[in-house]
């Protein structure tokens, strides 16, 4: 890692450093060592079922931030194929006009299978971007399944995107995401039934006991409804209300990454597998280690 080049804003050094983080060769503790004072960037996640328009919406959000002269990093996460381990990362296709700005860094990431590993790397990447004075970070991730909920939990704000033509994700997961979301967007308002979808969602939210997020009807294609969305985003950044279920998820995620990053974990798993120790003994052993730290 060439720290001088990195600090001077060299893109290739930044990119290479992200690769090191992705491989687990560099941790946020190392980053903190090089950068004593770090301003935390505002981290937004945009999530929702495949094809609802997350990338198209991202483009408008990015443009809006660029117009305000913000330094922006985008992390677009897509699942790796469980069969080949490869991945097709295509979110960039939708990002056209903003691609040339020096204020935008856009990186596509594959989940690479190991549950837990990617989200913990993502928070290290966020740390690096913050250290380099990036002000806004946007994480695009598909909102189905536990891993993605965890990706969302490393961010401060969550936008959940729905569309009239989107296949519904599993009810339970959707309920979980709706509880976490700070903003719900119904995209493709140019299509029939978008209005209907928005009304359904508002109704469902009224039934929940938690304070519910606002629902916005937009069209990324026609660029409609964004003014209100941007105002709401600004408003939230100004006074973010803490959300209990989100704190719960963040805590359990932090707990989990502590566990999986624990250096003796492989040995403990081996001992468990060969029944040399019980789960309780394993927990005690791990706790003992954390105490010394």
């Amino acid at each position: 890692m060439d720290i001088i080049k990195l600090k001077n804003g060299d893109r290739r050094s930044l990119s290479k450093t992200l690769t090191m983080i992705e491989k687990g060769d560099l941790k946020s503790a190392d980053i903190k060592e090089f950068f004593p004072a770090i301003n935390e960037a505002e981290v937004w996640a945009i999530t929702g079922s495949p094809g609802v328009g997350k990338s198209c919406i991202s483009e408008h959000i990015i443009d809006n931030w660029l117009q305000e002269n913000k330094k922006i990093a985008v992390l677009a996460v897509d699942p790796s194929s469980p069969l080949s381990g490869g991945a097709l990362l295509g979110d960039r296709i939708r990002i056209s006009n903003s691609d040339n700005s020096d204020n935008l860094f856009y990186r596509s990431l594959a989940t690479r299978g190991q549950s837990g590993a990617i989200p913990s790397n993502i928070s290290d990447m966020i740390k690096l971007f913050s250290a380099l004075d990036y002000e806004k970070i946007l994480i695009e991730t598909v909102g189905a399944g536990q891993a993605e909920v965890r990706v969302a939990s490393v961010s401060k704000f969550i936008i959940l995107v729905e569309a009239p033509d989107s296949g519904d994700i599993l009810q339970a997961e959707k309920a979980g995401l709706m509880e976490l979301a700070d903003i719900i967007v119904v995209n493709k308002s140019d299509l029939e039934r978008a209005n209907e979808k928005a009304e359904q969602l508002k109704l469902a939210l009224q039934l929940s006991e938690n304070e519910s997020p606002n629902v916005f009807l937009i069209s990324a294609k026609e660029k409609l409804g964004f003014k209100d969305l941007f105002l709401e985003m600004k408003e939230l950044e100004k006074n973010k209300k803490e959300n209990k279920s989100k704190s719960k998820i963040s805590l359990s995620f932090a707990w989990e990454s502590l566990l999986w990053n624990y250096k003796g974990i492989d040995l403990i798993l081996q001992k468990l597998e060969s029944e040399k120790i019980t789960i309780k003994e394993a927990i005690n052993e791990i706790m003992e280690e954390f105490k010394i730290d």
Partner: peptide, 15 residues
């Protein structure tokens, strides 16, 4: 792009 993904690589397609 698909063939390379199926061979286990991470493929970024630009459009």
């Amino acid at each position: 792009a698909r063939a390379l993904r199926d061979a286990g690589h991470e493929v970024i397609y630009t459009g």
